[in-house]
């Protein structure tokens, strides 16, 4: 009974129809980042009936997320639930038919390389340009469309990148902006998130239902507070010498398998991930820590956290570690080697 009615209104929408609905249900969408953008787009797509959704995110739920990250609850904050796990629980309650694959990982080249081929489209819901440029090049390599989306304050911007057709992000951006404007410094209002996602998900549905002609083809931006809307036809900016989309060099996929540190913008936190081949024994590690009588020791099946004044250390199952309370990678590494090895 449910299955007859569930997608009726969406199928009534003429460009989708019965055939479009079937395509949606047979599709696989990868959403990278499950913060504000990823929470919203995954909910829309799960409700739309997408067959399979893979979610990737490196973080766990914190109180300051609740203002805009619609899939999470106070319970998730209390349990320090990884975002993809909390998201999956909620999404699965909304639609039990969608297959949801939840991966608690820091998305890098390898993670994308192993999945890109099997997905139909990738939604960018990350919070940094490093990951976006990896997505950009992976999508060129595997000839997959992806939808850039980002927002800060009351401003948002989005663009759909189609291999062999549109410019790519590398063509459009001459440098990675470092003006310090992030959600942690100038804030963000929830409607700006929803507006970006409205564009992103509409583009994805067009792609999944074979409505390529309806794609916007424009770089779209808006400022909801200033009542501004911009749409630029950027097709002429496709760069014949672009190493990503014209020369197949994929500079953003070059990678060294070594310990990597990243300062998380605006969060006074350093992330450390070990080289790729290192095996981490989470259970043993947890047991070992328990004996140390650490301050505010906490654990769930996905992570452990504890405090070494003035730092808070969070270690995920795969060994990836967040050191809160510092912006100094050297200082963070010292703590990492002391506890994680």
């Amino acid at each position: 009974m449910l299955s007859d009615n569930r997608y009726h209104r969406q199928m009534l929408f003429e460009p989708i129809g019965e055939a479009g609905q079937r395509s949606i249900q047979e599709s696989h969408v990868l959403i990278i980042g499950v913060g504000a953008l990823g929470s919203s787009s995954s909910e829309m797509l799960v409700r739309a009936g997408v067959g399979k959704i893979t979610l990737m995110d490196r973080d766990y739920v914190e109180e300051s997320n609740l203002q805009r990250q619609q899939l999470f609850s106070e319970e998730d904050v209390k349990n320090q639930t990884p975002k993809v796990i909390a998201a999956k629980n909620r999404l699965q309650a909304i639609n039990s038919h969608t297959i949801i694959e939840a991966k608690v990982i820091d998305v890098g080249v390898e993670e994308l390389d192993s999945i890109a081929e099997e997905v139909d489209v990738i939604i960018d819901a990350t919070d940094n340009f490093d990951t976006r440029l990896i997505i950009n090049d992976i999508c060129q390599k595997y000839r997959k469309p992806w939808v850039y989306g980002a927002c800060v304050a009351s401003y948002g911007v989005t663009f759909t990148v189609l291999p062999d057709e549109t410019p790519c992000l590398q063509c459009l951006m001459d440098h990675i902006p470092n003006d310090g404007a992030t959600c942690d410094t100038v804030g963000i209002i929830s409607p700006a998130v929803q507006m970006v996602v409205a564009h992103q998900v509409t583009e994805v549905i067009k792609l999944l239902t074979d409505n390529q002609d309806a794609l916007s083809g424009k770089l779209i931006a808006f400022d909801l507070w200033k009542n501004q809307q911009m749409e630029l036809k950027v097709a002429t900016l496709k760069d014949e010498n672009c190493p990503s989309c014209s020369q197949a060099k994929y500079p953003n996929l070059e990678y060294q398998a070594q310990v990597k540190t990243a300062v998380l913008c605006g969060r006074n936190t350093v992330q450390i991930r070990a080289g790729t081949q290192k095996n981490f024994h989470f259970i043993q590690f947890k047991e070992h820590l328990k004996d140390l009588n650490l301050t505010n020791f906490f654990s769930n099946p996905y992570l452990v956290s504890f405090e070494i004044d003035p730092f808070r250390i969070v270690v995920f199952k795969d060994g990836r570690t967040l050191i809160h309370g510092t912006k100094n990678p050297q200082e963070a590494k010292k703590l990492y080697y002391r506890f994680v090895g």
């Binding site: 980042g33 913060g35 504000a36 953008l37 990823g38 960018d124 819901a125 990350t126 919070d127 940094n128 340009f129 976006r132 989306g149 980002a150 927002c151 800060v152 401003y155 948002g156 911007v157 459009l172 951006m173 902006p177 404007a181 992030t182 959600c183 963000i188 770089l219 931006a221 911009m230 749409e231 630029l232 913008c265």
Partner: peptide
Amino acid sequence: FEIVHFVGGG
């Protein structure tokens, strides 16, 4: 002028 700048938040 129409000016669109790239931001990173999400």
